[in-house]
């Protein structure tokens, strides 16, 4: 079953934006905003969605970054994105990463600017606590870093994946989430995924595409580019936000798995691109109506290189 031609139910569509400067490209598009137009505006060569959904109006913008504390937006950036989104009739979701205290201290200034009932994707239990204590008017969503599973793009066979199944299907996972006011969770589609991974577990499910993340670090290789050698790779090091400009494709030079998924490094995070298997699983889950929302990688991608 191919994803593009899949007969699907109608999930919500969200489009992610990390670099607020790219909002200009979306602002010039005719209304209503479709996934196809937005992706083309950001340089995508293909629309990674079922045809039926590609020309449907977007529902929501996911703004910010899930992986790096240094990419927490400045308030004027957030304001621009919020104001524009509200004007377009789009919902707003703020993406937040794991944070040190300094980042936690910056959050209230951002959260207070979000419209009532806006979503905040949390990948840090401290951020969740802050939301619950100080911003109960906002809706927390469990981010991808909370739903643990093996996502190694090098796995030699399905046996390796089945040895450690994902934890999200355990009844304790939604129980934990609901205890803390979470009704929705985001997820990746793992290598050697099975449709059952996406079966309803009591939480509304958002699925990212066309990439999953494999791992992240606090130390950022590209972010050390402009630093003196002795300052590189230190905890909490500064950077020039090189991740907004550069990314690296990764090629294994030793052994290769016949199931190897193409990987790339952007900022401090390694991602893999979905293969046929992930597309098949997603198509089936869409057909079953299990997916509440598709979250499209907007500007955080590896698809716009010139080669």
């Amino acid at each position: 079953m191919s994803l593009v031609n899949a007969a699907v139910s109608e999930p919500e569509l969200a489009f992610t934006l990390c670099d607020a400067a790219l909002l200009e490209r979306l602002s010039g598009l005719s209304m209503p905003l479709t996934a196809r137009d937005c992706m083309a505006a950001l340089g995508w060569r293909e629309t990674v969605l079922p045809e039926k959904l590609a020309d449907r109006a977007l529902d929501r913008i996911h703004f910010g970054n899930e992986f790096c504390e240094r990419l927490l937006p400045h308030r004027p950036q957030l304001e621009r994105v919020v104001d524009w989104s509200v004007e377009q009739g789009l919902g707003v979701t703020l993406l937040t990463p794991m944070l040190a205290d300094r980042g936690i201290d910056l959050l209230p200034r951002l959260l207070e600017r979000l419209p009532e009932q806006s979503e905040v994707v949390v990948n840090d239990w401290g951020v969740l606590r802050l939301l619950r204590e100080q911003f109960p008017r906002l809706c927390p969503v469990a981010g991808r870093q909370m739903g643990k599973m093996i996502k190694d793009p090098r796995l030699p066979s399905a046996e390796w994946a089945s040895a450690i199944p994902p934890g999200m299907q355990s009844s304790l996972y939604p129980k934990l989430m609901r205890r803390f006011g979470i009704e929705s969770a985001e997820t990746d589609i793992r290598p050697f995924a099975e449709p059952a991974d996406l079966q309803p577990n009591g939480l509304r499910l958002s699925v990212h595409l066309p990439y999953g993340y494999t791992l992240k670090g606090r130390i950022c290789k590209p972010g050390s580019l402009s630093l003196d050698k002795q300052q590189k790779f230190m905890p909490g090091h500064s950077c020039q936000k090189e991740c907004l400009v550069y990314f690296s494709r990764m090629q294994r030079t030793g052994c290769q798995s016949p199931h190897e998924l193409p990987s790339f490094l952007r900022g401090n995070t390694i991602f893999y691109r979905h293969g046929e298997e992930q597309q098949r699983v997603l198509a089936e889950a869409l057909q079953q109506g299990w997916v509440n929302r598709l979250v499209l990688a907007g500007d955080w991608n590896e698809n716009r290189c010139a080669d």
Partner: peptide, 23 residues
């Protein structure tokens, strides 16, 4: 979210032989 694979499959991902090309 990786597995420390046996060496014949590449070992831990942080020690695996990767070549990076920049864009």
């Amino acid at each position: 979210h990786t597995i420390h694979l046996p060496q014949q499959y590449g070992g831990p991902i942080c020690m695996d032989a990767y070549q990076y090309s920049f864009y």
